[in-house]
Simulated assay, not measured.
Amino acid sequence: MTLEILKTKKELRNLIDDYAYLSDEWKISDVMDLFTPDVTYKVYMGGNLVSNISGRETMEKEFNDHASKVKTYFTLNGQHTVKIDGETASGVSYSQIKMIREIEGKDILTDYSVKYDDQYIFQNEKWHIKERIAHFLIVESRTL
């Protein structure tokens, strides 16, 4: 494995970690900078497509709407594997996401186990996410 490949793997790992850090801090406009302008973002829950967003502007509106309903985010990233092909790459990553929302005066914790299938592209001297498919594999909610 060359130093260039190791450097690229590190940059791609930083990209998915930045997504988690910035999302947890509600820095949605900064999160959008991690994506290409023509991004596609799909969400599957229980194997069913529940969201299919195209374009960074649309995605930003959706993310802001979602964030407005959440009191707290906490994301923990796990394994991340990538296949690099020049200025494109594909990757799989796993995350544990916790969200607290207030519903009927009670704090509700929802715990998500998520697998992301990503397509990356190197543009303007940095890596971006061009396509993200989120598979919400386990979803558990409870009152705190």
Rank of each mutant, 00 (worst) to 15 (best):
Y44H: 08
G55N: 01
Y44W: 08
E57F: 08
D33F: 04
S54R: 12
G47N: 09
W26K: 15
D17G: 01
D33P: 00
P37M: 13
V39D: 00
L22A: 05
S23Y: 07
T36A: 03
V31A: 05
D24F: 06
K42C: 05
E11M: 06
M45N: 10
S68V: 02
S54M: 07
R13P: 00
S54L: 07
Y44L: 15
K61P: 06
D24I: 11
N14T: 13
E25N: 12
V43Q: 11
F63G: 00
N14L: 11
K69N: 08
Y21I: 15
D24N: 08
N48W: 03
L34C: 08
A20S: 12
S54A: 13
S23Q: 03
V31T: 03
N48G: 04
L34A: 11
I53T: 13
V70G: 08
L15H: 09
D30V: 00
L34H: 11
G55S: 05
D17H: 11
T40C: 01
E25Y: 11
A67D: 12
E62D: 13
G46T: 05
V31K: 00
H66S: 13
I28V: 14
E25A: 15
G47Y: 03
N14G: 07
N64R: 15
D33T: 10
S68P: 01
Y41L: 12
E62Q: 14
G55M: 08
D30K: 10
D18W: 07
V39G: 00
V31C: 11
K42L: 09
S54W: 04
P37W: 06
E57H: 12
N64S: 09
V50W: 02
S51G: 07
N48S: 10
V31G: 09
N14H: 15
G47L: 02
D18R: 11
Y44T: 02
K27G: 05
A67I: 01
T36L: 02
K69F: 02
I53H: 03
T36R: 00
E62R: 15
T40P: 04
D65G: 14
L12W: 05
V39R: 06
G55K: 04
E57S: 15
Y41E: 01
K27V: 02
V43N: 12
S29P: 07
V50E: 07
E60T: 09
N48V: 13
T36D: 02
N52Q: 09
L12T: 03
N48I: 12
S51Y: 05
D33L: 14
G46S: 06
W26L: 12
G47D: 09
Y21S: 11
D18I: 04
S54Y: 11
N14V: 09
Y19H: 11
S54Q: 13
M32V: 14
N48E: 15
D33W: 04
D17T: 14
M32Y: 04
T58F: 03
V39P: 00
D38C: 11
N14E: 14
E62T: 10
Y21C: 10
E60Q: 11
D17N: 15
S51H: 05
Y21H: 14
I53Y: 01
Y44S: 06
E60L: 08
W26C: 14
Y19G: 08
Y41I: 09
N52T: 02
E57P: 14
K27L: 14
I53P: 12
E57G: 09
R13E: 10
K69A: 08
V70H: 06
V50G: 05
K69M: 01
